[in-house]
Design a protein around this nucleic acid. Sequence first.
DNA 1: AAGACACTCAACCGCAAGTTT
DNA 2: CAAACTTGCGGTTGAGTGTCT
Length: 271
Amino acid sequence: MGRAPCCSKVGLHRGPWTPREDTLLVKYVQAHGEGHWRSLPKNAGLLRCGKSCRLRWVNYLRPDIKRGNITSDEDDLIIRLHSLLGNRWSLIAGRLPGRTDNEIKNYWNTHLSRRLLSQGTDPNTHRKLPDPVPERKTKKYSKPKQRAEPEKPRIHLPKPFRVTASVQCTNTFSTVSSTLGEGEVLQVPWTKFANDDENGTVFLSGYYNHDDRDFINGSDFECQSYYNHLQVPGADGDCNSLDKLYEEYLQLLKTNEDQVKLDYFAESLLI
DNA sequence: AAGACACTCAACCGCAAGTTT
DNA sequence: CAAACTTGCGGTTGAGTGTCT
């Protein structure tokens, strides 16, 4: 598959993964955690290169992978994020819990870019084209059958985040939590104070546990602690951060001629 | 029924950025 | 500080499968 190997990896297994290899990889990562991909194959008894192991884990074996068709809401979000971020697939995937950058990239290339073209929009610039390109008649295609996999809980591991000084505290957890299912991720936007030249948003992630009606993994705790530490004025008063961010986001989309603002916003999404 | 074509997506690559020595 | 190593990203490829003729 793909191109010829860049270097000779004599004796290494290539191509599609076998169930046995998958099992070995999953067991090893469950026991030792992610990382150390270079030494992983040897330790796990796999005849694969570390890169291949990482890719397989990240794009297929991770327990938080969301299988199934991409919903229209996700469609919409991908298009909007792409208009802001371009082909930064990993960033876009970071906003879609359970989706991988590879999946979104594939989906964009096979569905969305074509659809935008047919709607008269340049998929690269998101600007109107003079002449819409008629959509190719797509044949009905159903996904090839995947190996049967046991139902797994959807857990979205939070991405590392950077918190800069002077962050506006919000209490959006309760606002959003009612829409979350067990184990689903919350990504709460925290807007920064605009008391310096930086505009931006920091996304913090956590899990919502309906039984405890609380967030786990410490993110909210850490943030709260951080706020307490900063003693930010109004730290417990503003519950409308999500709304504000969304409005801000819509405004930017409406005025997408203003590339500077868009770039600013896009930059703020960069972790 | 069979071959040609269309389509999807897993897996590959090279490269850049980050980290360690 | 530089070299070596590791990790992650985006672009690309082609095997496998569905649909059409």
